[in-house]
Design a protein around this nucleic acid. Sequence first.
DNA 1: CTGAAAGCGCTTACAG
DNA 2: CTGAAAGCGCTTACAG
Lengths: 352, 352
Amino acid sequence: MTGTKRTREGSGRVKLEAVASAANVSTATVSRVFNEPDKVSEAIRERVKEAARALNWIPNAAGRALASSRTHIAGAIIPTLDNEIFAHQIGGMQAVFSNAGFTLFLGCSNYDPLEGLRQAEAMLARGVEAIALVGENHPAELFAALKARDIPYVVTYSYSKLSEHPCIGFDNRAAFIRMTDHLLALGHRRFAGIFQPVANNDRVAARLAGVRDALAAADLAMADENLLVGPSTLEFGAESFSHLMTREREVRPTAIVCGNDNIALGALMAANALGLKAPTDFSITGFDDLAISSRFAPGLTTMKVDNQSIGTSAANQLLAVVTGRQAGPQSEEVAPVLQIRDSSGRWPQDRA
Amino acid sequence: MTGTKRTREGSGRVKLEAVASAANVSTATVSRVFNEPDKVSEAIRERVKEAARALNWIPNAAGRALASSRTHIAGAIIPTLDNEIFAHQIGGMQAVFSNAGFTLFLGCSNYDPLEGLRQAEAMLARGVEAIALVGENHPAELFAALKARDIPYVVTYSYSKLSEHPCIGFDNRAAFIRMTDHLLALGHRRFAGIFQPVANNDRVAARLAGVRDALAAADLAMADENLLVGPSTLEFGAESFSHLMTREREVRPTAIVCGNDNIALGALMAANALGLKAPTDFSITGFDDLAISSRFAPGLTTMKVDNQSIGTSAANQLLAVVTGRQAGPQSEEVAPVLQIRDSSGRWPQDRA
DNA sequence: CTGAAAGCGCTTACAG
DNA sequence: CTGAAAGCGCTTACAG
């Protein structure tokens, strides 16, 4: 029945309409003052701004989003904040987005691709305009959903010229080839590895492949019993080290490649406890260059990546697309820098 | 002129209306199937779900938010993700919220209250239903805005019975009284402190007050030149330690209270470099109980706080309010646990 | 430069 | 249990 009275709650907040009547203009004009100020005469512009300020009006983003299809929201999906690497990326992204008037949704998959998908879908439903994803290990549905809606995205921490996705990061395989070559050049021939789980983690898989490829190129291989895989904790690093290095000297590895610094630091702690010293008794390497790695005794040989700048680059690329300055996000390779310290040395050691 | 044709872009996405016609029901019914399923007969319910799935419909949150005044978005404002303490809180919150169908906005103030306010306002404009804030050091406007809109909030990491805000955390002052009392009981009388900046950080201010109050209760005081304030880095901890401990033995502090573990670990590294050993030559304490603190040599005496559970509690309290199960968030005190390790010992040392 | 009004995609009070 | 339609708070194509 037309004309029936309806009672709706509403938000109870000051709305644009109130500003319009206070300033004696139409709602269209108020909207323009904030979205296309050049199209409004200065006198009216000031009057409207004054009214908005006086009424303490905060625009309702839902109304705005519905009318304009723009939400000024971006999203990021990372595995976990427990790894400071990802925390730094998010910190970088957050700063850039916030500065551009974007608010950031954060999702953590805990290395479960389906959980990542679920959270990405929640973000899509809430209208994110762009999204950053760590790594390429996501369900095909996720990439399909992004493409179907034409939502710009970038993959971070993985980089490959051959990737079908725009990516900002480094070539994990190449980095670990470089690290392994460093140890080979020092004379090491018996290698061991202590790594995080490879499942659902394309970055770790690539790192391990790098070690294997570099060894194969030198006609070497890592013995199966020398590859230990487990959680990325100091504890696992320490246990693994003890396991590897309490065997007879003749069969022990001389070089231990760790999947990251945290594992390597745990191993170094176990070494201290066992009275084994690097680089005299063994060499060991990490990846990440945590703050503590350079100050630890011995200093840890590792590779440094500027994770925060991966985050800022990713955010800047996404903003460039969202604001129409660019057609699509551009890939960017960030080179990890090898930091050679006392934890790696010649083998056999020259004892002076 | 009524009846004029208008062309609007629209999102180009599948919308609820399409699901309704595919399932041969009204839009109201489709909405009910997902929001109040009990009100729809099972046959129709299944038909609608089937149609939604077939069309791959994802509800538009802006439309939903506008119509229902609910966004299913929560927000958190922290100082920085660079501190793993806050990263863990966010990790905990993210998991709980995501599980309840809420997506999380993340804002970082970098210890600037105005930046925190700015980001909180952006979240309010986007309709957050609840918000968590680290500490009480926020502009009065921020709390006023939350109250004016009736947005439930909790303060984290600070706890005080006297607080005018709901808070989930611990009493920083009491924790540092406890730590200082531990050192006093061991026989220490000459104290030094290495702390993060107090400005805009009510937690650090309370920690320092705790040290001072505990000393005053023992008729002691910390000499001005023994309090060093600077960035929360290993470097600052190391420099400060050297500065304090390269003076003559007669004037040096015997106990050094650090504002957190990171600073204390830096100090311990400098001690190793200088050939000074705890607890023989000095005692030192931290706060946080980082993963590395128990495994370091010597083990660091510190206090452990379950930061992740602060995050999950905060999220659960906010959800309870938002879903109407509770009128307001309840405060919760989380007790830090003193972890006594080898970095603190009797003074003067009994040398066996 | 400015305004009247349609429309964005949902929810929900009302009627049946 | 189901539907017709008003309404949430904005933006913007159109007209002037």
